[in-house]
Design a protein around this nucleic acid. Structure first.
Length: 376
RNA sequence: GGAGGGGUAGCGAAGAGGCUAAACGCGGUUGACUGUAAAUCAAUUCCUUCGGGUUCGGCAGUUCGAAUCUGCCCCCCUCCA
């Protein structure tokens, strides 16, 4: 790895918590952490243009290896100049490996030591992903950060299952790393281990020995209780080196984000803001609202009085509700803009708070005002 | 004037003697969603003090039992004069 193109620079640790402020240097720019990364599975953050995303402060966004492999295929993405150029995103990108699809497409796949066989969710084609194959695809897609191929273990799972799976994920991590050659792309390892302390610890320690460019905590936010998720973070994070970025995978509700940051997480991604926006739910400074509710029929105020996103500056709840009810695509876009902006702004404010050693107060204040204990 | 067809819950539309407070769709209301098989999915939608009560254009019948059968009446549509 060429340290000139990708490295993490820890700038400041909050004096009263584990929260860290840092700079992530990537081939496509330098970005501040902690950060929230919107998810654009198919090289598109649904309903949003890459330009408006970037302008509202998104830094790194995700795309997905499995999905891009199926359509349009990594060779086309490569011919298009790599995923950033292909989709015209000015910031940096990260590809998830398809490890989540091992979980989400569980009914359509089989796992062996060699890898995972999927039945394409599009047409039933047989697709085989080995860790080596995934790295080959990710290198062609060309994101700034590639993720190792892992199994995102379901919750709950027995100790034996989690152990076997985690050890296999470790072997896969090594196999992937051995074939990763692209110098302008970082490769992250993923800590699994379920809810078991010794497995999380072992997995983290073994990955660190392999010396990845960053470390993710995976197998989180897949339906486990909140305290279990927090334990999963605690069990792993203390074994991760402070000079490498730590990425909490799949987390996007307000409480998870803030508590993750408090524990020393630098990066988080989630489909939540865009998905729930398309389904009518909005995160605001005063908690969640559902724009479908009839009480907004004649509410001519913005979604969130404290928000300065494009949607809140220009449109009322009554209009947004109308668009939603009328099933107008523009409504879904306006709502997505708001939710993504909301999380980007929260993490931006979190960074400011960390720099001033007042992250705890910041977190408490935001969560108190938000009210909803689920943190949505 | 003649000949047909039809009136079912907010709307559309099944049902043609009991298993029907009545399929299904739309509309309405509410909820879920966390490394996106998700612009998706679920619940609910006559009234109710949850015991029950009142329904299928209206009235009167047949029947142990009627949205379903009979008679009359009222509306709507199509065709012919």
């Amino acid at each position: 790895m060429n340290k000139k193109t990708f490295y993490y620079e820890l700038k400041h640790v909050d004096k009263n918590s584990g929260a860290r402020y840092g700079i992530l240097h990537t081939p496509h720019g330098d970005y501040e952490t902690p950060m929230f990364m919107p998810v654009g599975t198919l090289a598109s953050v649904k309903t949003l243009s890459p330009e408006e995303l970037y302008e509202m402060g998104s830094q790194i966004i995700l795309a997905n290896t499995y999905h891009l492999h199926l359509r349009p295929g990594e060779d086309i993405v490569a011919k298009g100049g790599g995923v950033q150029k292909f989709m015209n995103y000015k910031g940096a990108m990260l590809t998830d490996s398809g490890g989540f699809q091992v979980f989400s497409l569980a009914k359509k796949r089989g796992i062996s030591e060699e890898g995972v066989t999927f039945k394409s969710h599009l047409n039933g084609d047989k697709i085989f992903f080995s860790p080596e194959k995934v790295i080959e695809i990710e290198q062609k897609i060309g994101a700034d950060i590639a993720m190792s191929f892992d199994e995102c273990i379901p919750y709950p799972a027995t100790y034996q299952y989690v152990k076997d799976s985690t050890l296999r994920t470790l072997r896969w991590a090594k196999r992937g790393k051995d074939v990763h050659t692209r110098q302008d792309q970082a490769l992250f390892g993923i800590v699994q281990g379920g809810e078991y302390e010794e497995l999380r610890k072992y997995c983290a320690q073994e990955l660190v020995k392999m010396d990845f460019d960053g470390y993710a905590i995976g197998g989180t936010s897949i339906g486990e209780p909140k305290d279990v998720c927090y334990k999963m973070i605690d069990y792993a994070i203390k074994y991760l080196p402070s000079d490498k970025p730590r990425y909490l995978m799949g987390v996007g509700s307000l409480d998870y984000i803030l508590i993750g940051i408090e524990k020393g997480i630098d990066m988080m991604d989630c489909v939540l803001p865009t998905r729930i926006a398309r389904h009518g739910t909005l995160m605001t400074h005063k908690g969640r609202i559902n724009i479908k509710n009839s009480k907004f029929k004649e509410d001519f105020t913005p979604l969130d009085e404290e928000c300065n996103c494009y949607t809140c500056k220009n449109y009322t709840k009554a209009y947004l509700r109308h668009l939603y009810v009328a099933d107008e695509a523009f409504g879904k876009r306006l709502l997505s803009i708001h939710n993504v902006h909301f999380l980007l702004e929260i993490t931006k404010k979190a960074r400011e708070a960390i720099k001033e050693d007042r992250f705890n107060e910041f977190k408490e204040e935001v969560l108190k005002k938000y009210g909803d204990e689920r943190g949505f």
